[in-house]
Design a protein around this nucleic acid. Structure first.
Lengths: 127, 127
DNA sequence: GCGAGAACGACAATGATTGTCAAAAACGCA
DNA sequence: TGCGTTTTTGACAATCATTGTCGTTCTCGC
């Protein structure tokens, strides 16, 4: 399978490289429109899905509903997310990684991946 | 807030006590219908939500789509889920709990919760 | 037994995501 | 550079779990 370089794919990648934090597909689509880029919503969804599959961006499924996408630093890590304002901090947890793999191995599981999100209230949002 | 005991709430609780593994709201609703219990789908959703809020059942949001509910053992724990057949194992990880709280505290976060799911392929489903 | 308030449930509404398919663009090759 | 093949695009429709609505029904304390 060969991936072709298209204007739309570049635009999405470029946008993700510039923005901070998590954004929904619809957010990103709106931003592209504001920039004058003409990209269809369907294409934004598919492009994000492709990037996520390729491991180039992170996907988060907050309890609230829509999927959020974000360009992240390299390597595996997790997120500490403020329930109130959405502000996120990347956290690394080597101990957790090894723990997860060990537990999975104990039960004979292979091809293991995992998701971990920590939710809380950040200092500015505390009453 | 006072929770009232209704036939429907009892039916949902009883069903959850009997079935194994995770089931979607629609699944559970169908099972109730098969039993002859007349419960509305809306009510099943609301009841499950209430039970989840009360911490009596677990909610899982698999990448596939719908929410899955399950009556779980007491105490905080996580799940090791087979991507192929859905078979799940409960796993406890005290180390992870303390790690999550410590990380959150380091960043000044309060009111902390977290979600952790491990996905893999269980032995019977391995090729 | 009674009444206020909670819960129910049929139905409509929401809204993110996915499918469709003809038109357009990209790439390999000569 | 020109051409044909194959992928990609994107407007629109379709899907589908979940949530809102609101009149009716049921609980529970008194």
């Amino acid at each position: 399978m060969s991936l072709r370089n298209t204007r739309q794919r570049s635009a999405v990648s470029a946008l993700l490289a510039e923005v901070e934090g998590f954004h929904s597909a619809q957010d990103l689509h709106a931003m592209l429109r504001d920039r004058g880029e003409r990209v269809g919503l369907t294409t934004v969804y598919r492009t994000l899905q492709g990037l996520a599959d390729a491991g180039e961006i992170d996907v988060m499924r907050p309890p609230g509903g829509e999927h959020l996408y974000r360009r992240c630093s390299e390597g595996h890590h997790h997120h500490l997310v403020c329930k109130a304002c959405g502000w996120t901090v990347e956290v690394a947890g080597p101990a957790v990684e090894t723990w997860a793999e060990r537990v999975a191995a104990q039960h004979g599981f292979t091809n293991v991946s995992h998701t971990l999100e920590i939710f809380g209230t950040c200092p500015p949002c505390s009453p």
